[in-house]
Amino acid sequence: MDDILARAKSDLRVLGVRPNHMPFDASQALHPLALDYVIAGSRLGTQVLKRRWTAATDPLTQSASAYFSAPTYIEFWRGFCQQTETILGTDPVAKVVLKDADRIFEFYNACARSARKSLGVLHV
């Protein structure tokens, strides 16, 4: 997590973007498996975005290479899968993990809406 965060911050500096700190409601702790699911899973999704980044022709975009050149960290995804393969969907733990993962995705959504709004994108 520290590596990915440092890489994202580096790219934002290269792009001249100041991070917008969105508050996250941490009044309720998140289940560790929810964090693992979102963070490790996002590395898989990043591979799709990486293809778009690689195809970019803007030199500034190309210079922001730290995040997309990070390792896949596939071992974290595999570890998540091993930890959860025996948890049934009806298990109370599964319900907590899903609820907490949903909280994280809602936070991501709020961040995306905020960024789009600050860039003047009408459909947020």
Results as ranks from 00 to 15, higher is better:
P59D: 13
D3V: 15
R51M: 08
Y37D: 02
D3Q: 14
Q62M: 10
G79H: 12
T90S: 14
D25N: 07
R18N: 06
L12T: 04
F107Y: 12
Q83V: 02
L35I: 13
E106A: 15
H21T: 14
A55S: 12
T84W: 11
I74K: 14
G41N: 10
C111D: 05
Y108I: 10
A110Q: 12
I74Q: 12
L12Y: 01
Y108C: 05
Y37F: 14
Q62G: 03
S63W: 08
A8H: 06
A101E: 08
A94D: 05
T86N: 05
E75T: 14
S65H: 11
G41Y: 05
A66Y: 04
A8S: 08
L44N: 03
L15G: 01
L33G: 00
L44F: 12
R116C: 11
K50V: 10
G120W: 11
D102N: 09
R113W: 13
W77D: 06
A6L: 04
A29E: 14
R52D: 09
S114H: 12
I4P: 00
V48Y: 15
L33Y: 14
L35Q: 05
L119Y: 10
E85P: 00
K95T: 13
P59K: 10
P23V: 13
L5V: 14
Q47A: 03
L49S: 01
T86M: 07
G89M: 04
P59T: 12
A94V: 06
G41T: 10
I39Q: 00
Q82R: 13
S42W: 07
L44Y: 08
A55Y: 11
A55Q: 08
I4Q: 01
F76C: 08
A110I: 09
F68T: 00
V48E: 10
R103Y: 07
L60V: 14
I39Y: 00
D100T: 07
A94Y: 12
L98W: 12
R7S: 14
L60W: 08
K99L: 10
L5H: 06
D91E: 03
G45I: 06
D25Y: 05
V17P: 02
G89K: 03
P92V: 14
I87S: 01
Q47F: 01
L122Y: 10
D25W: 07
F107E: 01
L119A: 13
A6M: 02
K99D: 14
F24P: 00
L15H: 03
Q83C: 06
V38T: 09
P19D: 03
D58P: 01
M22S: 07
S69N: 15
R13N: 06
R103E: 01
I74G: 11
T57L: 05
D3M: 09
Y67S: 00
I104G: 04
L88R: 05
H31S: 03
D100K: 06
P32T: 04
A40C: 06
L49N: 00
K117T: 15
G16A: 10
A101C: 02
A55D: 10
E85K: 00
D11E: 02
N109T: 15
A115R: 02
S27R: 03
E75I: 12
A70M: 07
A64G: 01
M1R: 11
T46M: 15
Y108M: 07
S27K: 07
T61R: 05
S114G: 11
S118V: 11
